[in-house]
């Protein structure tokens, strides 16, 4: 079984992915790390970023966190507020 995840993209990742929100498919057991791998192969430009964090439900998430299709998932490229 695959699960469909909605991914919010901000800053430069919005330009790289070509939209504010994209859908990606992952295996049922797919984790943040799996999402990172898939993003890197689908959008190799993300590998050129200084950093890329992934937030799950408004919190920075480690690569081992398992993703659910109800999670709010967001790509966080290097922040530059202030």
């Amino acid at each position: 079984m695959m699960k469909t995840l909605k991914i919010k993209a901000f800053g430069i990742t919005r330009d790289i992915l070509g939209g504010r929100e994209v859908e990606l498919q992952l295996n049922e057991s797919g984790t943040v790390g799996d999402l990172r791998s898939q993003l890197s192969s689908t959008y190799p430009e993300v590998l050129q970023l200084k950093s890329l964090f992934i937030a799950v439900n408004n919190e920075y998430a480690d690569d081992h966190v398992v993703l659910n299709d109800t999670d709010e998932i967001a790509l966080i490229p290097p922040v530059s507020g202030g």
Partner: peptide, 25 residues
């Protein structure tokens, strides 16, 4: 801490192009 952690981004717009600040090495 805000500048280091809070998910806010800025893009500089110049006469000859634009650039997301700090996005790349």
């Amino acid at each position: 801490s805000l500048k280091a952690k809070v998910p806010i981004w800025k893009k500089e717009v110049f006469e000859d192009g634009e650039e997301w600040v700090s996005a790349r090495p």
